[in-house]
């Protein structure tokens, strides 16, 4: 029980918010809008899982938003050129994976600080995309949307797909040797090395995996509307990092679970629609988001202090 306290406390806050909504604004709980909300957050969830794993190995990636845009535009352009979806998905995956590889090589092999490397790629990729597309939309063919399924089925498929992916990753982190390596490298790279793990390989693999997940997420976003805006995904890095941190992933590495990330993302995703339902002016939104992030980490800080005190 104590192991899951962090995840449960986030779920508790989420439950409180939902209970308040049920009391003040029951209209929040309608099937179609909720389904739509969750489907729209499904790509963010996949990205947040990737970012959380990078944080678990004690690195960070702030270039995900730009990676997401690049993958979306690549997927969109190919789909618009008449490629079948079965061919678009692997290419997007590959594009994301190779962007992750670049970050990973710079971080793992050259030993450069990840926050700076990904700061550079954040700016370079975003501006490069601006240079190429000049903000122009990509119009997609009709058959791409919802993978050719009816809308509700498509939404369910995306949501279950994202959660299944998360479950798979969470299971792997817990029960596979590779998963434990991630935690080991994140807690203490030197000790991990002495135990026969190769921290560099693990770090590199995590970055590549994150890129690939971003590629998948980009496709999951592209299939939800008939147009791709090159600006899509800007600011996603902050959302993903915030979700991971609110969900209890320690920024110092080695601690946290993907289920916590799910809880954190759900909480953050509900704020904006909740404010619409509660008739709160949009001007307060950023301030409230900031307060929630601070509150979540303060809980963590107080808890740690108490534990240290004992």
């Amino acid at each position: 029980m104590n192991r899951w306290i962090r995840e449960l406390s986030v779920l508790g806050v989420l439950a409180l918010l939902l209970a308040y909504l049920a009391w003040r604004a029951p209209a929040f709980f309608q099937l179609q809008p909720l389904l739509s909300l969750l489907a729209r957050e499904a790509p963010s969830l996949v990205v947040a899982c990737g970012v959380a794993m990078v944080i678990l190995v004690r690195q960070i990636d702030i270039s995900v938003g730009s990676q997401f845009s690049v993958c979306s535009v690549v997927a969109g352009v190919l789909a618009a050129a008449g490629w079948p979806l079965a061919a678009v998905v692997p290419v997007a995956l590959l594009a994301g994976g190779s962007l992750g590889l670049v970050n990973g090589l710079l971080v793992a092999w050259l030993g450069l600080p990840s926050i700076v490397v990904t700061l550079a790629t954040l700016v370079a990729l975003r501006q490069g995309l601006n240079l190429v597309r000049q903000g122009e939309f990509v119009n997609l063919p009709e058959r791409i949307q919802w993978l050719g399924l009816p809308q509700a089925q498509g939404q369910w498929l995306l949501i279950t797909g994202a959660v299944a992916l998360l479950a798979l990753l969470a299971w792997g982190l817990r029960h596979l040797a590779v998963g434990r390596w991630v935690y080991a490298v994140g807690s203490d790279a030197e000790a991990a090395r002495l135990a026969g793990i190769r921290p560099r390989v693990v770090t590199l693999a995590t970055f590549v995996l994150m890129g690939a997940l971003t590629g998948i997420a980009a496709v999951m976003n592209v299939v939800q509307s008939p147009q791709v805006q090159p600006l899509t995904g800007s600011g996603l890095e902050l959302k993903a990092i915030a979700a991971a941190v609110v969900g209890g992933v320690a920024i110092s590495g080695g601690r946290g679970t993907l289920w916590g990330v799910l809880a954190g993302l759900l909480l953050l995703a509900c704020i904006s629609p909740a404010m619409v339902h509660l008739r709160i002016d949009a001007y307060w939104e950023k301030a409230i988001q900031g307060l929630i992030i601070l509150a979540a980490v303060m809980v963590e800080g107080v808890r740690q202090r108490r534990n240290h005190g004992r």
């Binding site: 209209a27 809008p33 909300l37 729209r40 509307s225 899509t232 800007s234 629609p273 339902h277």
Partner: peptide, 17 residues
Amino acid sequence: DDLKDRAQSEATALMSA
């Protein structure tokens, strides 16, 4: 934020609220 995707989410929330 000049984002099409976010406009879609906002419109969804507005219609249900």
